[in-house]
Simulated scan of single mutants.
Amino acid sequence: MLPPNSAYPWDLMSLLTSLTSMMAMTIAVLSILLALFIYAAYKALIRFPWLRPFTPGQGDPLTEWGIKYEEVEFKAFDTDHLIRGWWVPAAHDNDLKISIIALHGSGRDKHNYFQHIRHFHEIGLNSLIFDCRESLCDKDQTGKGLGYSFREHKDVRAAIHYVKNTHTTQSKKLIVTGISMGAASVVVACSKDRELIDGVIAEACYSHPKDAWQHNIERNLKEGVKAFASISALSKVLPTSIPKWLMDAILSTTMSVILRSEHNLHESDVPVHHIANISPKPVMLIHNTRDNVVPYRNSLALIEAAREPKELWTIDNGQPLHVTAIENDLTNEYIERLNKFIESI
């Protein structure tokens, strides 16, 4: 039994109070660190192109190949932004009266499809390639980072309406194509404007942005964020993997930030929910089995969700490339398949 007036109980109480304070402080610090990690992760997802060195594309069709083109601009679908690009008409003696619209991927500009222009022109296609509102450097009109097709698909809709209303005679038929985020934007836009288009070609398209986000978070943590020179020092302190609940928090936060970034954005506007609505217009998907940015499984999910007529061109050349078929050194096969696709519309 403790003697009367012993200080022991008070010492115990002080100890418990100290432990409680330390635990509260530890929890607070961990909460702050988790919040900062989630913040950094979602910022990296929506602004990763701005974190890497970027050189805008150079050259124009006239200087490079002697192909005439026009600098054009048109208003965005439901905002005041102006979308700018090149309209490249087919030669008068080789005009199929078919137009093709092409949209670049994330972190790129219209030069993503620069090499395609001469091939489109040789085939007899009129083409429009443009910079979406989230292009980099001085072409970035919003400062909001990437919209992962939630915003960008509206730029595609604006392009579709521009071509059909301004170049009606040359656009009796209209094909719309894109790569990566551009492809996802094309799928969503064309499902909404199905009556105005005649076919879709989607290269390296994600089925849902969350799948691409999770894949790239896991990939970059595992590789030590080597792609981001400006934050490579963090590799020494960042984990190489994270638990599911933390991944879910990052994905949900990213989605919420994007959906709140502009009016009239909807969580359901993702390719896997829209691709079936493009039918009966034909869809051709193109994907490299070793794509290291958007896994091939995304196109498998999309081709399953799509209705006929549909086609999946699987590229299996052993190269882990997230690029167009032409950049995969498959120009001849791409042109051959494009000609067959044109015949199908």
Rank of each mutant, 00 (worst) to 15 (best):
T331Y: 06
E71W: 12
N220E: 15
I197A: 06
I175T: 04
E134Y: 11
R108F: 08
R194K: 15
I242R: 13
L82A: 12
D155M: 09
S241K: 12
M255E: 15
K281A: 03
L34R: 09
A189W: 03
A41Y: 02
N339E: 15
G57I: 04
R260S: 15
R297T: 01
D109Y: 10
E195P: 05
N264A: 15
I179C: 06
T142A: 07
M22Q: 15
F341E: 02
G318V: 14
A7M: 08
V257K: 09
L196Y: 05
A233M: 11
L285I: 01
L2W: 10
R84W: 05
Q58L: 14
I38P: 01
Y39A: 07
R84V: 12
V225D: 01
N298W: 00
I342Y: 00
W86G: 07
S230N: 04
P243L: 11
I27Q: 11
R47W: 02
F114M: 09
W10I: 11
K226V: 11
H104G: 07
H274T: 04
S191E: 11
L146M: 11
R260G: 05
H263Y: 08
K172I: 04
L16C: 10
W245F: 12
E262G: 04
K236P: 02
L338K: 03
N298I: 01
V257W: 03
P295Y: 03
P243K: 10
A212V: 02
P282W: 00
L36T: 08
F130D: 03
F114D: 05
D248C: 02
P3W: 13
H119E: 13
D131C: 14
V29E: 11
L174M: 11
N277F: 10
N126F: 05
E134R: 10
W10S: 13
N126C: 13
I32N: 09
